[in-house]
Nucleic acid binder design. Structure first.
Lengths: 374, 374
DNA sequence: CTGAAAGCGCTTACAG
DNA sequence: CTGAAAGCGCTTACAG
């Protein structure tokens, strides 16, 4: 068992050992090897030439098995790892990918990160991961470039001009990039959910259930992702002879946007207070939808008997509420696989002249929170 | 707008431009600069000596302002970044921290990662992040070592012997480490929630409400974290003259462990079927607690009127269910700050002889899912 | 300010 | 198998 020392965020007291007579070698009977920091030191340690060690390390032919074994054994014993920085200077690939995250606090984004990293690792890439904001993006990209990453991935929604500038910078360094989620950045290779189509599917489905008036929850605002969604709603309504102005209502302006769940619940309250109630509610995300559902239910409204509610992202929480939430699945696995495929096609080759843009079809997942219009 | 090209995971078609007569310079009127890859090239580009450029780059004194400006301007124009690998060979710190995650799919772990990264970045560390399993941990650590990271952090629960071996390896390389969450690894610097105490608080509170029989949800199994929790329960019960055997029941063995929410719901079903029902239920995590709560409610039981349910981790979902879930907050911010403090005390110094272990006190967060025993 | 030189830790011909 | 050498991209004295 390790000894327990409580500290308060300060450095632990360094105890100076002065000549304990009972001192015994720790862990093993051989003396502790010094840290070996170079092939030169290591070669001396094994009693071979630097050149020979290097050849074993790189699996080159023409070596006696006995020599190979000797070196391997010494590597295991000393834990010697050749300096990656020297290796790269000699021309070895860095096998590094830089990943810029809008946030590590939103579940779908982290899920994309996790899956992308798994794919990259299978191709033996390691990842440098940074959360970026508008001000910090320049320095992050410069650091990635100084680390000679082989590609940079952006996951999330960013300030468009900012990322466009970063992408231009990457282009000047012949470094491939890919944007996941944020669609519409000039000259950006992009993989993103087809959000228009997502709303087409949701709205068509609700219209087929007889809904003609819709409350929009959190879909206002300048974000490209929200605007695309609203465009999809408008388009679909138009196809059924309705208009956005007449068939939809947004009360987003009535409440400050804090925690999404509370925001959704507040919105429900406002809709309840309005003269004419909508029969179906489309939320920006699952959290807002769940909040709204709670708001309606607490006021005694039946979901989906009196109002239908649909979410977005198809997170676990959709299954944990009652009734379970209808939502749109982002198809994260397909998204990430497409991203990895595009990157694989660009790394180590001349950059393509035109950006590659791939839209991923969403999957509407119908559950019990939506039903026929009353 | 970028042109839209649909592809199927294959590389984009490379279009060869053959002599369009309308070709115009893109983006600017100057010709596109070649990618500059070294100070030598860059010095030639600005018309200065390599030495001078280097001095500007490193902010050394004795340079004319005019020269400095000239170099800075050229850096902005060309986006030149000095090769980090050469810099490090010349003795510059790597300012890299390696982070080993058990998983990127569990919210509390990702939250720790996010907050730790923010603290590290404030000290201008970049992070190499890898998800590790028992087999892969060796190669990940060796890669971190070859990248000469200045410290390695483990976040989550691991196979003990595996991580102990990795920590020994790091020690041989004089590289500081820190384990967040997994307590009890020999010789490991550790920061972890005091899980025993967490259960002491929950159980004391429930006992004070009159509860005398407890259902344990998902707390069985060999995981150190679960065993610590059970030990805390036993201790507290003993303090009130009760015993684990008589006062608690676990039915975990009756259901396969899949999705936690469904697992919780199934467990509730089994408890409902049993002869004598417990009055309070302690869950491994919030998801299981929410599942159980749903299970009870669907069977017509009132929460907390007839049964009390408490979760663990205090995730957002606690607020989104009805009644809101009593849970234990891990105090992630304090945890991560402690971790960063310990690391800061160890980087660049001789490793301490004894490991530092710091336990973080939990915060019981009482909500409406727990109440007086019926 | 410039220029030539040494050296960080490697790999890779090259001659023994 | 060994050993000496060149060179990757930097920084840092050192002499001009």
């Amino acid at each position: 068992m390790s000894s327990i020392v409580r500290i308060d965020g300060t450095a632990p007291p360094r105890t100076i050992a002065h000549g304990s007579r009972l001192a015994v070698p720790r862990h093993s009977t051989t003396s502790l090897p010094r840290v070996i920091r170079s092939t030169a030191e290591f070669a001396r340690h094994v009693g071979l030439a630097r050149t020979t060690v290097s050849r074993v390390l790189n699996g080159q032919p023409g070596l006696k098995q006995k020599t190979i074994d000797r070196v391997r054994k010494a590597i295991d014993e000393t834990g010697f790892t050749p300096n990656a920085y020297a290796l790269h200077l000699k021309g070895k690939r860095t096998s590094l990918v830089g990943i810029c995250m809008e946030s590590l606090l939103t579940a779908p984004a982290v899920s994309k990160l996790a899956q992308l990293q798994r794919l990259l690792r299978a191709q033996s890439y390691a990842s440098l991961i940074e959360v970026i904001d508008a001000e910090g993006s320049r320095s992050v990209i410069r650091h990635f470039l100084s680390m000679r990453v082989e590609a940079v991935v952006f996951i999330g929604h960013f300030v468009e001009e900012e990322i466009a500038a970063r992408i231009a910078e990457l282009g000047r360094h012949a470094t491939p990039h890919l944007v996941i989620d944020h669609v519409g950045i000039p000259n950006a290779n992009t993989v993103a959910l087809d959000r228009r189509r997502a709303m087409t599917e949701v709205v068509s489905y609700l219209v087929s259930l007889g809904h003609r008036s819709f409350g929009l929850l959190g879909l206002s605002g300048p974000l490209r992702s929200a605007r695309d969604r609203v465009a999809g709603i408008a388009e679909t309504l138009a196809g059924h002879g309705m208009s956005l102005e007449h068939a939809t209502v947004s009360l987003d302006h009535l409440h400050p946007r804090g925690n999404d769940f509370e925001f959704g619940r507040s919105l429900a309250g406002s809709f309840l207070g309005a003269k004419r109630r909508q029969t179906a509610y489309l939320a920006l995300n699952d959290e807002i939808a769940v909040g709204a559902m709670h708001g309606f239910q607490e006021a005694g409204l039946a979901v989906p008997g009196e109002v239908s509610v649909s979410g977005f992202n198809n997170q676990d929480i959709c299954l944990m509420v009652n009734p379970r939430l209808t939502s749109v699945d982002q198809q994260i696995q397909r998204t990430v696989e497409a991203a990895a495929g595009i990157l694989a096609g660009q790394v180590g080759r001349p950059l393509p002249r035109r950006p590659v843009v791939q839209m991923i079809p969403p999957l509407l997942t119908v559950r019990e929170s939506t039903g026929p219009a009353p």
